[in-house]
Simulated scan of single mutants.
Amino acid sequence: MNSELYQNIGDEFNLGRLVAIETIQVLWSGYGELVRLKFPKKSIIIKHIQLPKSLSHPRGWNTDLSHQRKLHSYEVEVNWYKNFSKQIDKRCRIPLGIKCFQNENEWLLVMEDLASVGYVSNVTYAYKTHLKASLEWLANFHAKYINIKSDIVWSIGTYWHLDTRPDEFELLEDKELKKFAKLIDSELTSCKYQTIVHGDAKLANFCFSSGGDSCAAVDFQYVGHGCGMKDIVYFMSSAVEPEICEQNEEWILDTYFDALENAIEYYQKNIDIEDLEEEWRPLFSVAWADFQRFLKGWSPNHFKINEYSEELTSKALAYLKNKNLQKEKI
């Protein structure tokens, strides 16, 4: 039913007659669609955001707060493409933002089709080639934006941070995790090295080359300031099966920090990578505990709440307790 609208966009860019509309996905909670428009000259991607007449949510979170959070997330994404996607960076490739059409009830975000420049596939199962490519992308992205401040992204990146999830926090039944939730959040938001995190760095948001050894990332609704470990935790939880997380943890962190060292040398030579790694490595478990806090309030039976995530959360709480104890002795 949007064919006339999409043809108008093609006319705007002199692309010729619309050949096909390919629906890539319906946006979360019925907020529109992501489509590929095929024209004789080239294809483009449209993120078509339409405010729903009635709110729906797959897990029942149909609150005004949830609605406002989504609205702001789309505003952030539009700002991101308008201001941060005008130059190609092959080390952390994202789609070029072409144009945004906006009125009171909908946005049309026009983007480059990454498939047309070699990023041709999404994967549901990640081999180590895919993991390495994604970790290298994240390392370069984080290195590029360390100490960069912007008021057009989320002040705290990711969709699960404590300030934006009061309803889920209220329902959290894990008393100890609830007790330490603010300290966990503070540990992540007050660390010395802050960067811009992707904020939704799940496997599905990476597009890979045919060989899987390089990738680009999409979906910047929750991009914002924070500790890079938050992206690593969320990526790992989406890309590595729970039963093999423990055996892959060291490899994932080593791969990421090796790539981060290389990226820091490229983007910001003045930053002490040893000092950065010394601060961020222990925050891996803290960032996982932060995500665990959200999950346990949002969906207590979620498969990502498992033996490994519980062990990491316990490790984080022990780390914070010991750190507080050391402070008290000083």
Rank of each mutant, 00 (worst) to 15 (best):
T63V: 13
L71S: 07
Y256L: 05
N301H: 03
G199R: 07
A216T: 06
D219G: 02
P40V: 11
C191V: 11
I44W: 05
G32R: 11
E249M: 09
V223D: 03
K99V: 07
S150T: 15
A139N: 04
E246W: 05
A259Q: 04
T124A: 04
N8T: 10
K47W: 00
K202I: 05
S85K: 04
Q25S: 15
L18F: 08
E187D: 07
L320S: 04
D167T: 09
L188Y: 08
V76Q: 06
V197T: 14
Y125K: 15
A181N: 03
G97T: 02
E265K: 08
Y6D: 04
E307P: 01
E307D: 14
E106D: 13
I9H: 04
F235T: 09
S56K: 14
W288P: 00
F13Y: 11
S121Y: 08
T63L: 11
E136C: 07
K321G: 12
F84Y: 13
Y256G: 07
K90Y: 09
R281M: 06
I94P: 02
E104T: 14
S85L: 08
L188D: 11
E176A: 06
S299F: 07
E250G: 05
N62A: 05
Y74A: 11
K192E: 14
I184N: 00
Y74P: 05
S43F: 02
L37V: 04
G212L: 05
F284Q: 01
E250D: 13
H57G: 06
Y266M: 02
D11R: 09
